[in-house]
Amino acid sequence: MRIDFAGRRVLVTASTSGIGFAAAEGFAAGGAHVVINGRGAAGVEAALARLPGSVAGFAGDLGTESACARLVAEHPEFDIVVNNLGVYGPGDFFETPDSEWDRFFRTNVMSGVRLSRAYAPGMVARGWGRIVFVSSESALNVPPDMIHYGFTKTAQLSVSRGLAKRLAGTGVTVNAVLPGPTATEGTEAMLRPDMDRTGGGFDRVLTDFVATERGSSILRRATTSAEVANMILYVASAQASGTTGAALRVDGGVVDSIV
């Protein structure tokens, strides 16, 4: 299957590294014009230098209303929107303050709500579009040490499913992709305390994390950013026209379910 994005305008949020960068790279290689995003100008410029094809950057925290409004003013139309922006990290339920719950919700959920609300009408008017939410297996398998994170990922599934139904028959599909533990720079930062404590390298500590914290994994390893990006690229393609309202797992089998 050859996936062609020629002529498509694509936004990938939080795409200077990790899953977002891998997805942006795939879209650009497929001929799309891609706008990548990061919070700081330096990170955006560094990522642009590593990307092929027709690419542009937008620096701003899309977890805020002001940055979303500025993005829409600068780039009023996209054919494909990948809502990848998210924050994560462990925190005990009884020690996580309201401010962290608010920050996680604003960043992980409201960024995608605002951007989908802004760009979906144009997609509908043109009769074609793709909206993808990058959720997590934690939406279904809520981790007890990251409840505040899991609830935002579950909320994304509600938004993506409901929006798919709201846009029924328009030619615009809305889906969610659910990665499991993935070898990204963000995951390395999250596991840094364990690496410092044990003296182990990232690969070893990540493998141990999968074994101990995600013991139901069938893959028995973390996925790569490219493996997750492959699903994003497919579901954003013309070939995926029959898939909408779905939660598509790239979790290595962590979620112990046959559906």
Rank of each mutant, 00 (worst) to 15 (best):
N83Q: 09
S241V: 12
P90C: 06
A176V: 01
R126V: 07
L163D: 02
E77C: 05
V235G: 06
G63D: 05
N175M: 02
G215C: 04
G127Q: 14
E185F: 00
A240K: 13
V205N: 02
W128H: 11
G91A: 08
G245C: 10
A168K: 15
H33C: 10
A229K: 09
G242P: 06
L163Q: 01
G129Y: 13
T107C: 00
P179L: 00
E100C: 03
S111H: 04
A28N: 14
I36L: 09
W101Q: 11
N175V: 03
G242Q: 13
D145C: 05
H75V: 13
V259D: 13
E45W: 07
M110L: 14
R192D: 12
V174K: 00
D208I: 01
S216K: 15
T223M: 09
V113N: 02
D251F: 07
E185W: 00
T212S: 14
N84T: 10
W128F: 07
R117A: 14
L62A: 08
T96N: 02
G129M: 10
V132I: 15
D196V: 05
L191E: 00
T207Q: 12
S160G: 07
I80G: 02
V159N: 01
V132D: 10
A56V: 14
V113Y: 08
A226Y: 03
S237N: 06
F27I: 15
G26I: 13
G38V: 12
I147W: 01
E95Q: 14
F94Q: 14
L233V: 12
G89E: 06
I19Q: 11
D102V: 12
R197D: 03
G30A: 12
A168P: 04
S116F: 06
R106E: 11
G122H: 11
V142A: 07
E45D: 13
V177G: 01
T184A: 00
S257R: 13
I36V: 14
R197S: 05
G253D: 10
R114I: 08
G20I: 06
E25K: 10
A49C: 02
V142H: 06
T207Y: 04
G242Y: 14
E45P: 05
T212R: 11
T224E: 05
K165N: 15
D4V: 13
G53D: 12
E188C: 04
V82R: 03
G20V: 04
R9Q: 12
V250K: 08
M195C: 00
E45H: 12
E77I: 02
A29H: 11
Y234L: 15
I218E: 05
R103G: 07
R106Q: 13
D203F: 02
A73F: 05
I80K: 01
A47P: 04
I3K: 05
T244R: 08
R214S: 08
G7M: 04
R249E: 05
